[in-house]
Structure formats: structure tokens, C-alpha cells
Design a protein around this nucleic acid. Structure first.
Ligand SMILES: [Mn+2]
Ligand SMILES: [Mn+2]
Ligand SMILES: [Zn+2]
Ligand SMILES: [Zn+2]
Lengths: 153, 153
DNA sequence: TTTATTATTGATATTAAATATCAATATCGT
DNA sequence: ACGATATTGATATTTAATATCAATAATAAA
């Protein structure tokens, strides 16, 4: 089995377990949204509206509220992250593995998003927290500026 | 002259220069808001609503829109920063010096905000940007969790 | 100082995203 | 198949941010 296929099953299981634990129900709509989101939006950062417009093409009967609620469910169950890049709209992205962690550089000109991870930053940050006796739950780091295409740099 | 008094004059000048450059006008309201904000909110992170409620007590005729627009003006002129800590409300804080730069740890329990600065993080971050040919305009780093009072750590 | 020009003010309206409501319907354990 | 409970989709509400606009204030010109 490919790593991608393996991860697919993992996510499915995590979601199903969450559904079971919370005594929720499996529905056609949730399946459709799950498939669309995890098949086509890996490595992307999609707004609720965008995903809704996308899904509507193949499934016109699905409502915005359902997409909204389902993305929230993905987040709660730990298979998706919510991101906020300062344009007032929440964005969602699939979590690629149990351990992955990354941050973002956002181009203010073209909207392009570059992801990065840096161990040194992570350890500094936890060190600072420890020094202040601060119990870290999560953190965000965003760099705004011009990407290589847009900037003179 | 104390450093605080010196900084006070600097800010005033920066603001006046901005007013002049943009061909705006000095007004009583702007003076009142300026004084309240820079006398009482150094090191704090105030919402528009909070500052408005505060100012209304001594100056009941000042409108919310004016406070809103004036804080925006402070930001544009470079004497205040706008912050967003994920509760959906913009917050403003006076900039303490021309060169200062810091980030925030936000307690999700009591709302307390701890500031910190870390040179190593800053240089790592610029290194990452350089590597990606990304021209940095600004950046934000926020740590969410439990402060020393609220957390078991 | 008076007048003319232009920006500001404060009340109110609008926008937009997030979230709540609810009757009809689907899911699931028995 | 039945009954209990969760879900759906349409719509309404909330809330922060921002736009509108007539009255007013600030500055420049006469
Ligand atoms: Mn990402
Ligand atoms: Mn601060
Ligand atoms: Zn990190
Ligand atoms: Zn920094």
C-alpha cells in the first residue's frame, strides 16, 4: 500500500472513530465532502465558500451549512486544520500526517502560500514558553510579504 | 527629559507629520483619543469597543466611528499596531519604540497576554524567507495555551 | 476677519462571515 | 419496521468591520 493510500485509511478511521465516540451518524453528505476535501485539497488552503462551490457542481443539493459544519467536524476530529491568513475568511487544509507541523508565508500580492517548517524555531518557541511557565496548546507563525514571483527582493 | 516623555514627543511628531503629509486635519477628538490611548494603554491590547467605552465616560459626545477611524490612523502612521488574537476582534497597542518588536502568548483560559521577543527566532525566520526568495513585509507569531496561573504546566 | 474649501464627525446603514434555528428527513439500534 | 435521535438545507440572526451622508469643524484664501 502506498503511503498516500495508508494515510487515507488512517484519516477515515480517525473520522469514523470520532463519529462513533460522539454518537454522531455517517451520512452521504459527509462522505461526499470527505472525499472531495481529502482527494483534491491536500496541500491547499480552501475556504468554506470555495469548497461549497466546488462540491455544488457535482452535488447541487448539498447546502452551505453542511459543508461548513462538516469542515468544522474534520477539524474537531483532528484530520484538518483551520487557518486564518488575515483576509477574514477561515481556511481549511487536510492534515497530512499525525506528526506533521508547518507554517506559512503568504504573498500579499498574488495570495500564493508557501509552507515551511523549521525545527530551530519550534524549539526556541517552546523554550520561551517554558521560561514563562506557559503551557503551549498550539501556535501560529505567519510571514507576510512578496513571493519570489511578485517581489523584487 | 525621561525616555517616556521623549517617546511621547516622538509619537506626537510622527502623528502630526502623517496628518500633514496626508493633508488631514487636527481635531479635538483625535487629541482626546491620542491622549487616552497613549497615556493609559502602553503595554496593553485594547479593542475599539473597549477604548470607546473608556473614552465615552469623560467625553460622551465622541462616537464609536471616530474611535475606530482614529485607531486605524494611528496604525497607518506607524505609532500603533493592530493585533488579532483569534477572538474575532481587532486589538490595538501603542508601539513603544521605533525599533521594538515582539510577539504574544495568549492564555485561552483567562485571556492574559504575555509578550516576548526572541532574536534567534527572528533570524531563523528571515533565513527561511531568504531561502524561499520571499520578501518579508511583516510576520506574526502567537502561542496559545495556559499561562502560569491557569495551567498545571 | 470673513469666506471658501475641504476634511471630520457621529448617527445610522450596510456588508460579510460565522453561527443559530427549525421543520423535514435520514440514520441506526432494537 | 419502529422509534429515538442526529442531520440536513433553507433561512434567520449575530457581530465586527466598514460605508454613507448631512451637519459641522478646521484650515486656507481673500
Ligand atoms: Mn498549510
Ligand atoms: Mn503586545
Ligand atoms: Zn511551529
Ligand atoms: Zn518576530
Amino acid at each position: 500500500m502506498t503511503p498516500v493510500a495508508k494515510r487515507k485509511m488512517e484519516r477515515r478511521k480517525t473520522f469514523n472513530d470520532y463519529i462513533a465516540k460522539k454518537q454522531l451518524k455517517s451520512t452521504k453528505q459527509r462522505d461526499i465532502i470527505f472525499n472531495e476535501f481529502f482527494n483534491y485539497y491536500i496541500g491547499r488552503h480552501v475556504t468554506v465558500e470555495e469548497l461549497y462551490e466546488d462540491i455544488k457542481r457535482s452535488n447541487p443539493s448539498i447546502g452551505f451549512a453542511t459543508v461548513y459544519r462538516t469542515l468544522k467536524l474534520f477539524k474537531e476530529s483532528g484530520i484538518a486544520s483551520e487557518r486564518n491568513f488575515g483576509d477574514g475568511k477561515a481556511r481549511y487544509e487536510p492534515i497530512r500526517s499525525e506528526t506533521e507541523h508547518h507554517h506559512h508565508m503568504i504573498c500579499t500580492e498574488c495570495g500564493d502560500i508557501v509552507e515551511f517548517a523549521n525545527m530551530q524555531i519550534e524549539s526556541c518557541l517552546h523554550q520561551v514558553a517554558k521560561l514563562n511557565e506557559f503551557n503551549v496548546k498550539n501556535h501560529k507563525l505567519e510571514i507576510y510579504g512578496l513571493c519570489s514571483s511578485c517581489g523584487e527582493s
